[in-house]
């Protein structure tokens, strides 16, 4: 399954590195990344393949949101299907 990882917060050095580092640590492959910085606000969206994840999905999601809390960022990991079903007919 594929998951959408969203990272929102104040821009600083190393956000992308920290998030992608954690993905690599848990064997999660990043398929696509888009990011933008608007008036100091950092917004990044990653599409990641989590089938090979070394821990349970919930645990991986919890680890990433924990990383977000430590760095003052809001990080969500959600199943790709949620967005597909809401925004595509």
């Amino acid at each position: 399954m594929r998951a959408v990882i969203t990272v929102i917060g104040k821009d600083m050095v190393g956000i992308l590195a920290k998030v992608s580092g954690m993905c690599a640590e848990y064997n999660v492959n990043i398929v696509d990344v888009t990011q933008s910085v608007l008036q100091d606000m950092f917004a990044m969206i990653m599409l990641a393949e989590v089938s090979g994840c070394s821990v349970a999905f919930e645990q991986f999601a919890e680890q990433l949101s924990g990383l977000g809390r430590e760095n003052g960022l809001s990080i969500h990991v959600m199943h790709e299907d949620l967005f597909n079903s809401m925004h595509r007919i």
Binding site: V4, T6, D32, A43, E80, H87
Partner: peptide, 12 residues
């Protein structure tokens, strides 16, 4: 890939 606006809308 999914539209960034749509994703942020869902999260909001």
């Amino acid at each position: 890939m999914l539209n960034v606006g749509d994703i942020l809308e869902t999260i909001t």
